[in-house]
Computed example of a mutant assay.
Amino acid sequence: MQFLKNLFGGSEPEGLEASLGEIGVDMHSHILPGIDDGSESLEQSLELVRAMKALGYRKLIMTPHVMSDFYKNTPEIIREKLALLRQAVDEAGIEMELDCAAEYYLDEGLLQKLDDNEELLTFGDNYLLFETSFLNEPLNLREAIFKMRSKGYKPVLAHPERYTYFYGKYEELVGLKELGVLLQPNLNSLTGYYSSSAKEVAEKLVEHGLVDFLGSDTHGLKHINTLQKVVSTKHLVKALALPLRNRQL
């Protein structure tokens, strides 16, 4: 299609499918339409699904933000958008398995949901994707982790390499693994897309075999464009040699 020809410089994405295709399932993206700071429309969502397929993915587990003050998404709202996109993808003849979960921001709202036993959207083996402030370590981080696990969830920390409060405190980040937290770096961090510091932490996590999932965190075409560069990074090769849980989804 013309969109993909333009995206990949007028030719098919030679070699890309074999690389990112080894991941198979992306479990972190914001491709559902009009629901957070990701895709703004159904048409844009379709473009992103096509692009992810061209990169080699066979399944997308889309994870809209859930934040008490900004994105008050519920399981019902998210599933409604999933059904809408599934229908559009089917009508467009795109072969891609679609599912949904959510990316929960660690705030009082999440703790209350846990206390009230509200339904939280998970993926795979009851994996719960969550994020925190990028700048300040939450005072209740360990309390929240304990609550998640006590409720039967398996917490997955989204893009751990991007939290500046762990910079210079790598051992503290690694210590979360001992608390039962799984780690999911963003693929684009391997290119330095976010910062050189995020790249350094992501590479260390790969080198030390501490990566459980790899996610695209795709919000738009700018992330797709950078994903094309990831395939030429040496740390992607190292990451693909790890027992990534993406392949079990």
Rank of each mutant, 00 (worst) to 15 (best):
L98K: 06
G175F: 08
L179Y: 14
K169E: 12
D69R: 10
P138V: 04
K234D: 07
L121F: 01
V201N: 05
Y194P: 04
D37F: 03
L183H: 03
A101V: 09
L120M: 03
Y105L: 13
K154V: 01
S19H: 05
E161W: 06
E143P: 03
G38N: 02
A144S: 09
D212K: 11
K59D: 15
N186I: 11
K147L: 00
Y71W: 15
L120Y: 00
A158R: 05
R245L: 14
Y165L: 01
Y163H: 06
T122K: 00
E40H: 03
L48P: 03
L110G: 02
L242N: 10
K151R: 10
I94G: 10
I145W: 00
A158M: 06
P75I: 03
T63G: 05
L135V: 11
K177M: 07
A54F: 14
L187T: 13
L135P: 04
S39E: 04
E143K: 07
N6K: 09
Y193M: 05
A88C: 08
A51Q: 08
I23Y: 01
R50T: 06
E137F: 08
I23R: 02
L236C: 13
K238S: 12
E178F: 07
R245C: 03
I31W: 01
Q2S: 15
E97G: 11
Q228K: 11
L82T: 11
G175Q: 13
E131P: 08
E91D: 15
A83Y: 12
L244P: 06
T132L: 03
M96G: 13
G93F: 01
E207I: 12
L106W: 13
R247V: 06
E76G: 09
L176A: 12
H159T: 02
E119T: 04
L176F: 09
P155S: 02
L106R: 15
S196G: 04
E91V: 11
L85Q: 07
Y163Q: 05
G175V: 13
L106P: 14
K113A: 08
P160Y: 14
A239R: 08
D69I: 11
N6M: 07
D36Y: 01
D115C: 01
N188C: 10
D115E: 07
T122W: 00
G9S: 10
K59A: 08
D217C: 12
K81V: 13
L114S: 10
I23V: 12
L236K: 06
G152N: 04
T233R: 15
K59I: 10
F70S: 12
L176G: 13
L46Q: 03
L121Q: 02
S232I: 08
T74K: 06
F130V: 03
S19W: 02
Y170T: 11
Y105W: 10
G124D: 12
S68D: 12
F123K: 02
P155C: 00
Y153F: 13
T122E: 00
E108V: 06
E161K: 02
